Simulated assay, not measured.
Amino acid sequence: MSNGPAGHVARSTVRPNPETGRQGPIRTFLCTADGVPIDSVYDPGAAVYETPGSVPDAGRSAARDLVFVVAHGFTGDVDRPHVRRVAGVLRGHGAVVTFSFRGHGRSGGRSTVGDKEVLDLAAAVAWARSLGHTRVATVGFSMGGSVVLRHAALNPGTVRAVVSVSAPARWYYRGTAPMRRLHWLVTRPEGRLVGRYGLRTRIHHRDWDPVPLSPVESVPGIAPAPLLIVHGDRDGYFPLDHPRMLAEAAGDHGELWVEPGMGHAEHAADEALLARIGEWAVAAAG
């Protein structure tokens, strides 16, 4: 896995809306370090932002230049309703970048189910920073939750806070029925056909080589950036030993929220929880 700089970011400019004077959303394709086009959306959020390159006010709040970069779960994409709902809540706390991982939605390439996806996130983070945001918080769900952990460890200093929701602690876990079904989807030719035509997700046929750093091995490398681990006590994919392993590896720079009654990832994260995550990130990234 390369931990080099993200690829060339597609040219885009943030222009104020002539009616409101505020910046409007941008949709563009970014190019990763290995040449994959990534469908991406920037929303300046509900707060009032400085235009990129301007001199910030000395007394502005932490939220005013904070940007959330959201990493969705496997089979999601930037247009899925649950991804848009996450972005809609977080935009009340800062700007938001959402994107489709490779092999998902309109992005190019094929999914490697958490390996090369770290390059997709790196391109999105680099884009957010190029738009003038000095505080970046990454928020990942399930597969995206593992990606934000590895990205922060491989690219120290590029993010100010990390939130990992419903993530695995270790690779190749097959201890639950949903994960056994997922492994069939990823490893079998007929499963990949179901992924392509039934779930709009194009999955790479090659095995990992080399096997990427696991989430739990990545966590110690995230410090000093603060880390929030969120997991539901009714998660059908990964039982509670996964978040507890991550929290133990994080030590003093990590925080664990076990959410009563919550299931798995974006679909199970209600608006109240997402708002709490936004508030945590504003404080942590300050």
Rank of each mutant, 00 (worst) to 15 (best):
A153M: 02
G105T: 05
G4L: 09
E271S: 11
S142W: 10
S218L: 00
R160F: 00
V69W: 00
M262H: 05
G254K: 03
R64F: 00
A167G: 06
H267P: 00
V186L: 14
G251A: 10
I26F: 00
L149H: 01
H82N: 11
G195H: 07
L240K: 12
V148N: 10
L213E: 01
E117A: 00
G105Y: 02
G286A: 11
I229Y: 12
V89P: 03
E271W: 04
S61N: 09
W208V: 07
L199Y: 13
A161K: 12
V118Y: 00
E217T: 02
I229L: 14
R15C: 04
G103W: 03
R129C: 00
V159A: 02
V230T: 06
S100C: 04
L256C: 10
N3D: 10
A95P: 06
A272M: 13
T75C: 14
G88I: 07
I222M: 03
A123W: 01
H82L: 10
V219R: 08
R196T: 14
D209K: 07
A47G: 10
R85V: 02
R276Q: 12
G88S: 09
G236P: 15
L274M: 14
P224Q: 12
M262W: 04
G45Y: 01
V125W: 01
R15D: 15
H151V: 02
G76E: 01
R91W: 00
R15F: 13
A122H: 10
G103S: 12
K116R: 15
P156H: 15
T51D: 06
G24L: 03
G251T: 13
L185P: 08
A6N: 03
S142R: 12
V125D: 02
R106V: 10
R181M: 07
A46F: 04
G157S: 04
G21A: 02
R11Q: 08
P168Q: 15
G286T: 05
F74H: 05
R135I: 00
A128L: 01
M143H: 14
P215G: 03
S2W: 13
